[in-house]
Structure formats: structure tokens, C-alpha cells
Amino acid sequence: MKAPANRSVFLARASFRRRRLRDAARMLPILALVLVLMPLLQTGHPEARSSGVLIYLFVLWVLLIAAAAALVRPILPTRDETGSEPEDTA
């Protein structure tokens, strides 16, 4: 909304995308927390094995690392942004 009209469509799209990816970066820890607590649903179940949970947790870990790594570059402030963007504006 606040992008001046004379800005090109391409730039607006890029910064819009960057903002949405920042939202994704904010969601990532919440998602991670939920997924990490998931194995508790199985606890005490006679069929539940530590090895299964171990594999689940490490696969989850690798995916989290990959997601975080993929997000870093797109969400970092660009040179024209000073990084002092108002928080949480859409």
C-alpha cells in the first residue's frame, strides 16, 4: 500500500515477497516447536520405539536446518533497506 506509484512492479513484487518470507521465518520456530512436541503423543504406547522417534527427530532437524538456510538470504535486508523497516507491516 505504501509503495509509491512510480515504483516499478518488479521492485514491489520483490519486497512483497521478502516480507512474506519474513513471515515464514517467524512461523518457523512455532512450527518447529509443535513438531518437536509431537512424539509425546506416542509416549508410553507399547509399540513406540526410541529408534523410531530418534529417526523422526533427526529428519525433522535436517529439514528445519534446510528451511532456515533457504530463508536466510531472501529475508536479509537489502542495501537500499537500512534494516530499520517498521516491524510487522504488510
Binding site: R22, A25, R26, L28, P29, I30, A32, L33, V36, L57, W61, L64, A67, A68, I75
Partner: peptide
């Protein structure tokens, strides 16, 4: 896992 969640939520 705790620090992992905090680090992943660095933003």
C-alpha cells in the same frame, strides 16, 4: 532442540 528452535526463530 531448545536452542535450535530459538536459533531458527532468529528473525
Amino acid at each position: 532442540l531448545g536452542p535450535t528452535i530459538v536459533m531458527v526463530g532468529w528473525w
